[in-house]
Amino acid sequence: MTGPDPTPGRPGRARWVLGGLLLAVPLALAVAGPPAAGEPAPPGVPFAAGTGPLGTDFVGRDVWWQVLSGGRAVVTVALAATGLAYLAGAPLGLLAAMTRRRLLDELLMRPLDLLLAIPSMLLLILLAAAAPPGPPGLVPIVAAINLPEITRICRAAALESAAGPVMEAMLGQGEGWWRRAGYAARSMLRTLLADLGVRVVGALYLVATASFLGIGVPPDAADWAVMVDRNRAGMFVRPEAVLVPALLLVSLAVGLNLLFDQIRTRRTA
């Protein structure tokens, strides 16, 4: 997506530190939060001071408990969906790039172009309405939305080596299809690693937005994005019930992108 960064004196260290710090807080909460949260306290009065440091939410549950348990779903679904999309997209792209038959290439890629023409949010809303709510239903949907772009990038990355001199030599020596596919797969790995960050951030964006819109999640799920949506009614009384999860999501997204961008510029420099 973004080209190589030819900046001479890169603003390296500051961005590494900032990105790392921004990512560390939400990530630590997502990983260590759920076990640390323990059993939920019995619900009290909605949007009251409550017993926890952040008061209570729209149905009187402890907001701090929700903050502790609400990060895991977003992070896991985003990572799982990205993984699943690569699992399906990489072989498809490789196959399309390796084939000598134009028809097979078109047959693989044209339907994905069609999928790209559907606005992703429309696709998300429709698919989620048909799937059971909850993380297991959301993973394949987000993966499916990311599939066309990932396949295109895999195909483009593999095509460079599939049409290159090494491949010609391998063909000339009569190397088998699997050996050649293995070579093309190894050579596209570099491009894929540079692109990985964009994909993870994109998946995170989709998962959080879907959860906020109430798509594909139970309405009372312990989830940062759902908290932002459901606690908006008490924004005047208890803004922290909305702002803390919103800022955690912002911090997660910004941290991830800063770090991935640093990795990318370093690789291309």
């Binding site: 961005r15 951030v201 995170l204 964006y205 959080a208 937005t209 906020f212 819109l213 994005a225 932002v228 949506d229 919103a246 800022l247 999501l249 912002v250 997204a253 910004v254 991830l256 992108n257 800063l258 961008d261």
Partner: peptide
């Protein structure tokens, strides 16, 4: 780079 990743609702 920082703003790019932030979901609109947040």
């Amino acid at each position: 780079v920082a703003l790019y990743a932030v979901p609109e609702f947040a």
